[in-house]
Amino acid sequence: MGRAVTRVRPGAVGDRVTGVRALWAAVRPGRLAAVVGVAAFGVAVAVGDGAALERRRVVALLALPPVVTGVEAVAGARADDARGASPWTAAVALLCGAAAAALIVVADAPASAVWLLVAVAGLSVVGPLSPLSLAGRGLGVPVAVLYWGFALPGYGAAAVGRTGRTVALTLLPFALLVVAVRLEAVWPRRHADAYVGHDTLAVRWSPRWLRAVYAVAAVAAFGALVALTDGVVPAAPDVFSWSATIAALPAMPVTAWGVVRFTRRRRPYPAAVAAGLVAALQSATWAYAALG
């Protein structure tokens, strides 16, 4: 008898490759890298507050990428109606959830870190890339502030053992810059959002109001940074050392340029650059102080 030959349906391999590519696009690796970077900023905040990087606690940080990947894969595939991605999406979501749960158990993560990880997942579900996004109802800015400004870096800090008022106040200037970052993100899409019925702030408000909110957020961010610096305001808690405050100052002219140019150019992104500078330079300062 001849050997049985398995016939492959024409196009089957190509369909699978297309599905994997669509799923990879739905995960949005660039966004995932930004998520990890912001969480690392939270770790630096905790280190600046005196936390030690124990190996067991660092393992808890590894639970964040699987959670975000699973949620983004499901939300992105549904939002984009990615061809061929559906068979892979459920498997990826289950694997990511199992991996995150295992890492949390192995790391014996604090309860605060677990709850913040749940908050990250929940905010991802209603984020701007999700079919359940609240951005179309004018709530994109508060969701972004909670997600990027507090939940992600807060999880990084909680995973290594730091939570509370000091961590929240340390994150406040960065979170206020997220307001400007989000406004920059929705401004170029205002016409498309209006066409499909998404009532974002860029659709609701005039350019003058948007510039005013942008400017207030920028001034408040650096005002909070200075006010919370050691010895500046006697009634305010001393959250930032002078070295951490000075490290963030290069972001000020970038933010000022954003205030001047916002709504006057189609794609000005100085607020995103400024927020990245604040996170990177302050993280380097705290890491240097901890190593020294």
Rank of each mutant, 00 (worst) to 15 (best):
A248L: 01
V68R: 01
V38C: 05
R266T: 08
L62E: 06
V179D: 02
G231N: 07
G161W: 14
A151G: 03
G97R: 03
V47L: 01
L132Y: 11
P188F: 03
G164E: 09
V5C: 10
V232N: 05
A224P: 08
L129T: 11
W115L: 15
D49N: 07
A180P: 13
V181I: 13
D15L: 06
D199R: 14
V47Y: 00
P188W: 11
V216N: 10
L129K: 08
G161I: 11
A63N: 08
A82H: 06
P110V: 15
R267M: 13
L169K: 09
P29G: 09
P110E: 15
A121S: 10
G292D: 07
V71I: 07
R208T: 15
R265E: 09
A63K: 12
R9V: 11
A202Y: 09
A90L: 09
V74H: 04
L95P: 03
V239F: 14
L62N: 01
A33S: 10
L61R: 00
A275S: 05
W115V: 12
A25I: 05
A159W: 00
A119T: 03
D193K: 10
V45I: 02
V254E: 00
D80W: 06
P10I: 08
P268F: 04
R190T: 14
G258V: 01
L152C: 12
L146V: 12
V59N: 05
I246M: 11
A247Q: 03
P270I: 01
Y269E: 11
A40W: 10
T263W: 11
A90E: 07
L94V: 07
A175T: 03
A158K: 07
V278L: 11
V45D: 01
W205A: 15
V125P: 04
V125S: 05
A194E: 12
L172V: 14
V118E: 10
V59P: 05
A39R: 00
V17I: 12
